[in-house]
């Protein structure tokens, strides 16, 4: 097995770990702490000669577990991260269209934030990180069919939200 190097193998995972931690904790500072703790634990395991086969999936699982622990310990506090204030719309939209777009965008984001952790994580790993069902099942320690069923339910709700706002 290849020797794990912190700079080349662990540090590049920081953004995907951060996004997952942010999806679960909904707090930027907590998410950053989670990433640091995740990386440190992986490095300590490496020092003991215990390197995982799939370091990315292993790191994501650890990141998820630490994030859930933080949420349990602190409770579901107030959401503390900047939900992307950059211009989300294109220039071709009319003012009323932009209004509808922003309303829909915020509704979907809030809906996602209110989802149970499992649904939120499945949706995030698939739709934001583009992970395969197999990878998601590995990260979350659930079956692939469980992942698909969970995702199906969430997507059906998202479809409703998208279509309802326009109506």
């Amino acid at each position: 097995m290849k020797e794990i190097d912190f700079r080349t193998d662990i540090l590049p995972l920081k953004d995907q770990l951060f996004r997952l931690a942010l999806r679960i904790t909904l707090n930027r500072e907590d998410a950053e702490d989670v990433v640091q703790e995740t990386m440190l634990r992986i490095w300590k395991e490496h020092s003991k000669g215990r390197d995982p086969d799939n370091i990315s999936a292993y790191a994501m699982t650890m990141c998820r577990n630490i994030s859930i622990d933080i949420v349990r310990r602190k409770g579901r506090g107030n959401i503390s991260y900047d939900p992307l204030t950059h211009d989300r719309t294109d220039g071709s939209m009319q003012a009323d269209e932009r209004l509808v777009f922003d309303e829909s965008y915020d509704s979907i984001r809030q809906f996602m934030e209110r989802l149970p952790e499992k649904q939120r994580t499945v949706l995030h790993l698939r739709d934001s990180e583009g992970r395969s069902y197999k990878e998601i099942s590995e990260i979350m320690s659930v079956s692939e069919s469980d992942v698909k069923i969970t995702l199906f339910r969430v997507r059906q709700k998202l479809k409703e939200i998208c279509e309802r706002i326009i109506k």
Binding site: L40, R88, E97
Partner: peptide, 30 residues
Amino acid sequence: RQYAPLFRLQADESRFTLGTDFDQRMLDVI
């Protein structure tokens, strides 16, 4: 167009990143 916000939101997720200051902090810890 009604579906655009959903897919735009998914794409926007990738914009949440950690800066190089995190790298330095992490390397110090390691």
